[in-house]
Simulated assay, not measured.
Amino acid sequence: MTQTIEPFPLIELTGGPEARGRLYGRMAKARVHKSLSHYGTQLAGQGRDAGAVRAMARDFVPRIEAFEPDFVAEMRGIAEGADVAFEDIVLINCRTEVLQLAKRAEALAAIRKEPDGCTGAILLPEATADGSVIHGQNWDWKSECAETGVVLRIRREDGPDVLTFVEAGGLARCGLNAAGIAITANYLESDRDYTQEGIPLSLLRRQALNQEQVALAFRSLYSTPKSGSNNLMLSHASGYGVDIECAPDESFLVQAEGGILVHSNHWQSPVALAKLKDMGLVSTPDSAYRDRRVRDALTARRGKLTMDDLRAAFFDDWQSPWSVCRPPRMNLGGNLSATVAMILMKPAEGLMEIAPLPALNRNFTRYTLAAEGAAVRAA
């Protein structure tokens, strides 16, 4: 049985980084506070008080500032607008890295209990009915985050406009820009994780969306040092798509086959598998078939694929609740997990469609880079 769930609100931001941040903080204040309350409860359960966590976040700031000073200015603005501590906004943007680098052994155990899942796909022109690029993902994470997500439409003065879905207070998660670049990300884990300090993954995604050129977006994803592993899927409206499997210190490419590229939460590159140990399948065993389920459904209609075909593939419920489209269920660490959002994008049109908790709710909201507001439609 399906139900209607509140769509993610659309927030339009203008001005310089700090001004955008203040506007963002004011307009998303309730959701920012809800997000912080959720993570605060989690941290308290791990025996960490707010002061200690804020101190960890402060230590992280110089690295972010050296990478992109505007990100720090934007986060300061968000904190001011939402009436929260600056360090709390840093934590939202670096939630994984701040905790894990503070105490590696304990942190690694924590993330294996709560992996950030996802199944992503890119459809290139040779596979689609109208010759366009279609890019999307199911974001699997804590089911409570269906109440904290927002969509940002960022009118930039120094680069292409950006449309991004993100947890309130964050700078980016997945999205597209006015230059035709789109990005999604999937959880990966390896034996190299959290042995070095790197740039937070959410900020890498925002940096890619800030770019006019695919080469510069690719460079920021491929070569920037990271703390943990991650899979990054990059596409461009002109017909380009690539998957970048990232270890903290090295990246590996996976290319589309027949115009179709699908990735879940295990390493695919033969070169990567020859050089590192895949640690993620223990906590996300359903990844072993999720990518194959989606790929097979898409391959059956290669050359005729539309956004509705990708939508149908992402709704796959074989082996539910351990399925491509995950209803709220307890994960192996005893935490409530779900497909928080299904995101579908057409970069050439600046179009994004999102359904919160799609296993329960089949209503999508359409967001665009154009001036009109969000529009809700039934799948």
Results as ranks from 00 to 15, higher is better:
A110C: 02
I111Y: 08
R112F: 02
K113Q: 15
P115G: 09
D116Y: 12
T119R: 04
T119K: 02
G120H: 03
L123V: 10
L124S: 03
P125H: 04
E126H: 02
A127D: 04
D130W: 02
D130A: 15
G131C: 10
S132F: 01
S132I: 01
Q137P: 00
W139I: 12
W139C: 10
K142I: 05
K142W: 12
E144A: 15
C145D: 11
A146N: 09
E147P: 01
E147S: 14
T148N: 14
T148I: 02
G149A: 12
V150E: 05
L152Q: 00
L152C: 07
L152V: 08
L152N: 01
L152K: 03
R153H: 10
R155D: 10
R156I: 08
R156Y: 06
R156D: 07
D158L: 11
P160C: 07
D161F: 06
D161K: 03
V162T: 14
V162R: 03
L163F: 11
F165T: 08
A168T: 08
G170H: 06
G170F: 00
L171E: 03
R173Y: 14
C174L: 10
N177A: 05
N177E: 05
A178S: 15
A178I: 04
A179P: 04
G180R: 02
I183Q: 07
A185R: 01
A185F: 04
Y187T: 05
E189V: 03
S190F: 06
S190K: 01
S190M: 06
S190W: 00
D191W: 07
D191M: 02
D193H: 08
D193A: 12
E197I: 13
E197T: 15
G198F: 12
I199W: 00
I199N: 01
L201I: 08
L201W: 05
L204M: 12
R206A: 10
Q207R: 15
A208N: 03
N210K: 14
N210A: 14
E212S: 14
L216M: 11
F218A: 11
R219D: 15
R219S: 12
L221N: 09
L221W: 10
L221S: 04
Y222V: 11
T224W: 11
P225H: 04
P225S: 08
P225L: 10
P225M: 03
S229M: 09
N231Y: 04
L232G: 00
A237C: 03
A237E: 01
S238F: 00
S238C: 04
Y240A: 06
Y240V: 10
Y240W: 12
G241C: 09
V242R: 10
D243S: 14
D243V: 03
E245L: 08
C246Y: 01
A247L: 13
D249L: 00
S251D: 03
L253V: 15
V254Y: 02
A256S: 15
A256Q: 07
